[in-house]
Design a protein around this nucleic acid. Structure first.
Ligand SMILES: [Mn+2]
Ligand SMILES: [Mn+2]
Ligand SMILES: [Mn+2]
Ligand SMILES: [Mn+2]
Lengths: 218, 218
DNA sequence: TAAATTTGTTAGATTCGTCTAAGTTATTAT
DNA sequence: ATAATAACTTAGACGAATCTAACAAATTTA
C-alpha cells in the first residue's frame, strides 16, 4: 500500500496534469505547499515504485499505474464527499476537508458500502466525475458559463476551484447544481453577466465567478 | 493536537489501566506490539506533554489531562462504531478495524454530526460506554455471566475482548446484546453452562465464553 | 541469599517526510 | 548574446517513530 503522503502526491499530480499529462515540479510544490527539494526526492521515490516517469529537468508524468492509483484515491475522496452530503446532511462547502482525511482510510469494505448506499453515483456534490473501480474517469464535456453568449439558457453542471468561500458565495446567491440560468446580457469590458435563475430576475455575476461555473447548454 | 501515534498510546494506557490506574511499560509494549525502548521514549515524550506520569522503574499513570484526551479518542472510536452499525448496516464484528482509523480524524463537526444522527448514544455496539464530551466515562456495573448461578435469568449487556472471531461465534449462536438468557445448569469441573435463550432450549457455553459476556440480572 | 530471569533503560542506527543552503540548468529580459 | 531570473537538483540536517544491542534494576526461583 501507499502512504498517506504518497497518496497526496499522486492525487496532486493527477489533478494538475495538463492535456499532455505533464506537471512541473514547481507547480506540484506550490499545490502541495511542500518545498521543491522535498518534492524532488519524493518524485524519485515514486519513480522507483513505477508510479511516476521522472527524468531530470523534464516535466513529471504519472505512469499508467500511477494514474490508476491516483484515480482510486480520488474515487474515495469523491464518494466520501457524496456520502457526507447525501447521507449526513453536510453542505457542499463543508465536505472537502473531511473527505481529504477519509480518502486515506484503508478499508475497501467501507467504500463499497458507501458506494452501495449512494446507488453507485457517477458525480460528486460539486459535479466532478467519480472514477470507477479501476481508477478511470469518464470525462464529460461541459462549457464554462463565461464562454456562453447572451440569450442562451444553460444548466449549472459543475463547479471548479471548489473553495469554501466560493461555495458559500454560491449558497448566498442560491446557485446550486441543476440551476437553470438564462443569460440576459454580457458586459464587453469586464465580461460580467446579468443572468436570471430561480425567482431571481437580474443577478450580476463577475467573470471571476462565471469562469468557475461549468454548464450544460439546454 | 496529538499525533495518530500519540493517540494510540493514550488509548492503550487508558484501556490497560488497572484499579490504581497503573500500567507497566511491558504490558503497554505487548498491547501495542511496539518494542519496549520505543515505548519508553514515547512515555518520556508524553510526560513532557503532561499526559503521563513517568518515573524510572515505576508503573505508568495517565495524568488527568492524559485521561481526558484518551477518553476523547475512545469517544470517537465508539461513536464511530455505533454509526457504522446503526447507520451503515455493518455487523458488530466488522466495525472495530474501521473505527480504529476513523477515530483519528480531526473534525469535531464530523463527530458531532454522527452523535446527533445517533441521538446521543451512551453505549457502543458492544455495550461499552461512550465517554462524554469531556472524556469522562459513566461506568455501569455488570456481572460476568460466568459469575452467575444456575436458575438465574439475565440479559446480555456487553461483550469484552471483542475480537472478530468471538463476535462471529456469538453471531453463529444468535447471541446479541439484549438476549435474555436463562441458566439451566453449571458444570462443577469446567464451569461450562447450559443455557436457554431465544428459541434455543439447551445451548452449552464454555467458561471461556461466559466470562467474556457481561450481563444484567433480571 | 545467591543465581537466574524478567523488566526496564540507554545508546545508537534506520526510515520517512520534511527543511535550508548552495549549486546547476533552463528560461526570460535587456 | 549576455545578464538576470526562475526552475530544478544536490547535499546535508532534523524530528518523529521505529528498531537492535547492550546494560541495569527488580523480581522470581532455587
Ligand atoms: Mn474535495
Ligand atoms: Mn468535490
Ligand atoms: Mn473497537
Ligand atoms: Mn466497541
Amino acid at each position: 500500500m501507499h502512504s498517506y503522503t504518497e497518496e497526496n502526491y499522486l492525487k496532486a499530480l493527477f489533478n494538475l496534469a495538463n492535456d499532455k499529462g505533464e506537471v512541473s515540479p514547481n507547480e506540484l510544490s506550490k499545490r502541495l505547499a511542500i518545498k521543491m527539494p522535498t518534492v524532488n526526492s519524493m518524485m524519485k521515490k515514486l519513480a522507483e515504485k513505477k508510479l511516476v516517469h521522472y527524468e531530470s529537468y523534464k516535466p513529471l508524468r504519472l505512469t499508467d499505474k500511477g494514474r490508476k492509483e491516483a484515480g482510486l484515491v480520488i474515487r474515495k475522496h469523491r464518494l466520501t464527499e457524496m456520502f457526507l452530503v447525501q447521507k449526513m446532511d453536510f453542505g457542499w462547502e463543508q465536505v472537502h476537508e473531511i473527505a481529504e482525511q477519509i480518502e486515506h482510510l484503508h478499508s475497501p469494505l467501507f467504500f463499497e458500502k458507501i458506494d452501495e448506499m449512494l446507488g453507485y453515483p457517477t458525480l460528486d456534490p460539486h459535479g466532478s466525475p467519480i472514477p470507477d473501480k479501476t481508477g478511470k474517469i469518464d470525462w464529460v464535456h461541459y462549457e464554462k458559463l463565461s464562454d456562453c453568449k447572451a440569450g442562451e439558457t444553460v444548466k449549472l453542471a459543475a463547479v471548479i476551484q471548489t473553495t469554501d468561500e466560493f461555495l458559500k458565495f454560491l449558497n448566498s446567491r442560491e446557485l446550486h447544481l441543476g440551476s437553470k440560468i438564462k443569460i440576459k446580457t454580457v458586459e464587453r469590458f469586464d465580461g460580467s453577466m446579468v443572468v436570471t435563475y430561480n425567482k431571481k430576475t437580474a443577478e450580476s455575476l463577475s467573470h471571476t465567478v462565471s469562469e468557475r461555473l461549468l454548464v450544460e447548454k439546454l
